[in-house]
């Protein structure tokens, strides 16, 4: 069981890295939004899953799952709101 928690922690950290690199490297708001929310949600999900495995008590695991659901809902709606505002302000998605 230990290696599974370790593997999911590592995977979560990797996705966080991908989110940060995506935030720094991508050319415009929309693609950065895309990279950031996807990587964070998945990264956070793996991280919390690993932590929930370590903690062992199902109650705490349920609480971590609730945290993850809140972050999912929050970042989904936030990225929608920001992208819509960016479009309305004329920030066109980047084309090659």
């Amino acid at each position: 069981m230990n290696w599974l928690a370790l593997a999911s922690l590592a995977l979560g950290a990797f996705f966080f890295l991908a989110g940060t690199v995506g935030l720094l490297r991508f050319p415009d708001v929309h693609s950065r939004l895309h990279a950031l929310t996807k990587a964070d949600n998945v990264g956070l999900g793996f991280l919390l899953f690993g932590l929930a495995l370590e903690v062992g008590s199902p109650l705490v695991g349920a609480k971590l799952f609730v945290i993850w659901c809140l972050v999912l809902l929050a970042s989904a709606s936030v990225s929608h709101v920001i992208a819509r505002a960016a479009l309305r302000r004329g920030v066109e998605p980047w084309q090659r």
């Binding site: 929310t37 964070d40 970042s75 920001i82 920030v91």
Partner: peptide, 19 residues
Amino acid sequence: ADRMLSTQLFGTTAVALLA
């Protein structure tokens, strides 16, 4: 909006750190 995106990143990273 880009600055706001990095605050989003801070929020999520803070959640992970606190957990």
